[in-house]
Design a protein around this nucleic acid. Structure first.
Length: 428
RNA sequence: GGAGGCGUCGCAUAGUGGUCUAGUGCGCUCGCUUGGAAAGCGAGUAUACCGCAAGGUAUCGAGCGUUCGAAUCGCUCCGCCUCCGCCA
């Protein structure tokens, strides 16, 4: 959500963001609702003030009679306020975050901009296989039995794959919790930034509807798993329960940035992606993910995102995988995003780059409704800025490793940095 | 799942229908005092919204209700604690 005061004072900027992000919203309607709401509020406050004055001390019968009249008027106005407020809220929720200056304006994904490509595309002197073929042949991925037991888009990962995933988890935690490593990454990226380590978090995987809404992640609801008996949702990312953990809290400037590296299972209905990526681990109803979440001072949030992207690139390079970095255009970025950066790793079996990481700079868009603030040394309170990003989506990084590290014999080498965690060098 | 208790200003507590515009203590900030500090004394010390301001309104876990008037009474929900049951 944007600050309504900001909206009032920057109507043209907000209108442009609405247009560039292809959002169906008439801002003038919101402004009208805002004015009506304030008008009703003022009137209501005057009445309440009168009521408060009248209800002090012992009451005469005439006084009580007058107060009764006031009570009726207040009731009516409260009803009216409720209606106006709902209208205002419904419209205000649709207002998108303002894209950063370096975000390209564009209609759809075709206008996303490749910022850089790193690493040489993996070359083979044989025809590389797709990961599900390899998985089946090596008996480490079993989609058929998963379909029998749970349905489409589920998998049993077996044998070496769970060990590989655990290795990625351990490796990621070792990078993100090591201050020296972070310092080096920041220096290499020429960022003047704190090297404070990320704190490991295993968050809950279920979330209350109202908190989900405050994260602005409940919609589209068709994408979410809902458990009606308890009116609770399964998270689609650890972001959902880590980003909200400081709801209604005021952090101290001295403890900023507050950085987390979370791990959780993510649940997605994948509504509307019928027929897309039906084979293999690319698009699953359930997958495990390492997620970065960071709370910063407003002036540091953009740099924080640059740092997070640098960390991800460092890790992808460590794994020896070729990738490209994209900045998403206005038409393809999320409503909540100020800047949205994706990393796509080359998948030889599919012969293309596939999205493996997403980094979202939210500025104060989520913090405003979550009511997460920071008390500055000056004494002033401000909403914190938030960043979230994929550290690794385990299933997709497994795909990338399998396809890039396959051999002609149909075995899969383990990237060097992971070998000390897996305890083996090859899946065969 | 059952029974009971509890949720008040950063923390601890007082408050059982109007005097609560929420008291007190601790903590914190500033000042006085001091060579400096402690103690002591004095002042200040939640957030949001509206307003140029004076000021007003809301918030005592959340919501709904009773009442002329609710921190206080009733209902629902959430959370915490104790005991029992069950369970990994």
């Amino acid at each position: 959500m944007l600050d309504i005061k900001f909206i009032r004072q920057n109507i043209e900027i907000v209108k442009k963001a609405i247009q560039n992000k292809n959002i169906d919203l008439d801002l003038d309607k919101l402004l009208a609702a805002d004015e009506r709401k304030r008008h009703v509020m003022t009137e209501l406050e005057q009445l309440r003030s009168e009521q408060n004055k009248k209800s002090k001390g012992p009451q005469s019968p005439e006084n009580i009679e007058e107060s009764r009249g006031l009570k009726e008027k207040i009731k009516l106005l409260e009803k009216e306020l409720e209606i106006v407020d709902k209208e205002f809220n419904d419209l205000a929720l649709k207002v998108p975050n303002i894209p950063s200056e370096d975000t390209p304006v564009g209609k759809d994904e075709s206008e996303n901009k490749v910022l850089r490509q790193v690493g040489k595309i993996t070359q083979f002197n044989f025809k590389p296989k797709e990961h599900w073929e390899l998985g089946q042949e090596l008996d480490v991925i079993d989609m058929e039995r998963a379909a029998k037991v749970s349905g489409a888009r589920f998998a049993y990962r077996k044998g070496a794959i769970p060990l590989l995933e655990l290795a990625v988890i351990n490796y990621t935690f070792s990078v993100l919790t090591n201050e020296d490593t972070l310092k080096k990454i920041g220096k290499k990226a020429k960022l003047d930034i704190s090297s404070k380590p990320f704190r490991p978090i295993f968050p809950p995987v279920m979330i209350k509807p109202e908190v989900f809404q405050k994260m602005d992640r409940l919609e589209p609801k068709e994408e979410r798993y809902h458990i009606p008996s308890d009116d609770i949702y399964l998270i689609g990312s650890a972001e959902h329960t880590i980003g909200s953990m400081h709801m209604d809290e005021t952090l101290k400037e001295e403890e900023m940035p507050v950085r987390y590296i979370g791990f959780s299972t993510a649940f997605r209905r994948e509504a509307g992606s019928y027929g897309k990526d039906v084979k293999g681990l690319i698009r699953m109803h359930q997958f495990d993910k390492l997620e970065i979440e960071s709370f910063t001072l407003p002036e540091n949030s953009q740099k924080e995102q640059d740092f997070i992207v640098a960390i991800i690139e460092h890790m992808v390079q460590d794994l020896g995988l070729p990738y490209q970095v994209l900045i998403m255009c206005t038409g393809d970025m999320g409503k909540q995003d100020a800047r949205h950066i994706d990393i796509e790793i080359w998948m030889p079996g599919q012969n293309k780059y596939r999205e493996t990481h997403t980094s979202d700079l939210m500025t104060d868009f989520q913090a405003r409704r979550l009511n997460t603030k920071v008390k500055r040394v000056s004494g002033e309170s401000q909403y914190v800025h938030m960043n979230d990003a994929t550290a690794f989506a385990l299933s997709r990084i497994v795909v990338a490793i399998m396809e890039n590290y396959q051999t002609e014999k149909g075995t899969i080498k383990i990237p060097k940095v992971l070998q000390k965690y897996t305890g083996f060098k090859e899946i065969k």
